[in-house]
Design a protein around this nucleic acid. Structure first.
Length: 478
DNA sequence: CCGACTCTACCCAGATTG
DNA sequence: GGCGCAATCTGGGTAGAG
């Protein structure tokens, strides 16, 4: 809560879709939908042109295709978006050391901490300059909200969309919030919204009038008090630059439900390996292993096991996840599996061992960082099983190589992108960010003149940084 | 020794966010 | 009838330590 509107919220407009339109001239002004293309994919982001057909994020792809059959459907290219995001975040960093990214396309900035602004006029100036700089560096538009608190700044950027700036003067929050739906408050989603509606509260002013005690009774201590404060326009959460991760998890939804117990076990082990890979990559170890299971009927459960000490050992995590799976009924089929590690320790395994040993010297007990609390049976053959098992029916090499939307280069025709592929052919549109809309040609998938390529800079002379951002060739990205 | 009590850790589900 | 992925937070239950 502050007297000057110096908390800035930036939200890039239809980020993934806008990035694709910038990279592909033929898509500008057209409906574009970015999301998973599998049978169970959902929309990640869509362009404003697609929104006019009723498409929106989190919508099942099949439904989107019915609403907007002529839209371009593309798979997300996270390395590309991350490179653009880094350019944007770099610009934010010039405004203030206090930048809190919420995702690739969104962040809070404390303008006061950086001396970039100290009143409404200077804040507005900084916000407008930022929008110009982002457009210049990336060719993309972003919307800016300015206010005296995070909550109001975020609401402001929402109102500014697309391609705008809204500043809300401190002191005017309550009249602004009062008539709005409770759903605009952070923490009020479908469930809480319905809960409140049943209690007769639909607007923010309803909440303010209900009083704190009533809300606490309805929603519990933490939610109740915070919601009451938010409803008053009261929000003093600071902009926090860096927060360390508290958990790491991976999950997969399968194209068709899994029934075979052995196959399910194999997938859990594979997920455990992937999870540990990321855990170690971030230099962490963790104490609690979590298994997540979504059944055929969408019912979801989690099971967890806490070890005596943190681990980053793939064998330990895999076996713990396997044990947890034993306690789950999989009759009827499994739609999704996930493995996570929480209770992260920011020290490494070596440090941990040193600490455990030091403790052991004092107490006379043995160090046991990798011991399990649950006295699980040692399952030695599990390791070999995963290596010899048959891989799941994944997209073929050609399908991965020629995923729709990905950049390619042809030795004669130059830069282009995959428009579609199938039956041994791949269709490419030859154009690049600075060019006019290009034309389409079709090739055999194994045409030696055609090769995958890195994204080109969106702005003349601008860096993409994609080569650096791309850490490995494997599916699933970094 | 037992029961009541408090504190803490853990477990799990559900909700929310982008 | 269709519903991804990752992370965080909370409420409420249970179990063990003291």
């Amino acid at each position: 809560m502050r007297a000057a509107p110096t908390i800035l919220h930036l939200d890039m407009d239809a980020f993934f879709a806008a990035a694709e339109q910038a990279a592909k001239p033929s898509l500008r002004g057209k409906p574009v939908v970015v999301g998973g293309l599998g049978p169970r994919g959902v929309v990640a982001t869509c362009s404003y042109e697609a929104r006019r057909f009723g498409v929106h994020s989190a919508m099942p792809m099949g439904q989107a295709r019915r609403l907007a059959p002529n839209a371009a459907y593309l798979v997300p290219r996270f390395a590309f978006y991350r490179a653009i995001s880094e350019q944007v975040m770099e610009l934010l960093g010039r405004l203030s050391p206090l930048v809190e990214p919420l995702s690739l396309d969104e962040a809070f900035v404390d303008l006061e901490a950086g001396g970039a602004a100290d009143d409404a006029a200077s804040a507005r100036e900084a916000g407008e300059r930022l929008r110009r700089d982002i457009l210049g560096a990336t060719g993309l538009t972003g919307s800016v909200g300015l206010a005296g608190s995070k909550m109001i700044a975020k609401i402001a950027s929402e109102e500014a969309k697309p391609d705008g700036l809204v500043l809300i003067e401190p002191g005017t929050e309550r009249e602004l919030l009062g008539p709005k739906s409770v759903r605009i408050l952070p923490g009020v989603g479908p469930a809480t919204g319905e809960h409140l509606r049943r209690a007769g509260m639909t607007t923010v002013s309803d909440l303010a009038e209900a009083g704190e005690d009533e809300l606490v009774r309805l929603l519990g201590r933490a939610h109740g008090t915070s919601l009451y404060r938010m409803a008053q326009g009261y929000d003093d959460r600071p902009v926090v630059a860096e927060r360390d991760a508290k958990s790491v998890s991976v999950e997969d939804t399968f194209d068709v439900d899994l029934h075979d117990r052995l196959r399910i076990r194999m997938e859990v082990e594979r997920l455990a390996e992937r999870c540990v890979g990321r855990l170690r990559g971030s230099g962490h170890s963790g104490r609690t292993i979590v298994l997540k299971v979504r059944r055929y009927d969408f019912s979801t459960l989690t099971r967890s096991e806490t070890l005596r000490g943190p681990t980053d050992d793939p064998v330990v995590v895999r076996e713990a996840a396997g044990r947890l799976l034993e306690s789950v009924d999989t009759t009827g089929g499994i739609r999704l599996l996930g493995v996570g590690v929480s209770g992260l320790a920011d020290y490494t395994q070596e440090d941990l061992f040193a600490q455990a040993e030091a403790r052991a010297e004092e107490t006379g007990t043995r160090p046991g960082p990798a011991d399990t609390a649950g006295e699980g049976p040692e399952t030695a053959p599990a390791a070999r099983e995963a290596e010899t098992a048959v891989p799941e029916p994944e997209p073929s090499a050609a399908e991965r190589r020629w995923a729709p939307g990905h950049d390619v280069r042809h030795s004669a025709f130059g830069a282009g992108w995959v428009q579609g592929s199938g039956v041994g052919r791949v269709t490419v549109r030859f154009e690049e960010p600075g060019s006019a809309p290009g034309r389409v040609r079709t090739f055999l998938v194994d045409d030696p003149d055609l090769a995958p390529a890195d994204p080109l800079p969106l702005v003349e002379g601008g860096p993409t940084g994609v080569a650096a951002a791309r850490t490995g060739p494997g599916p699933g990205g970094p």
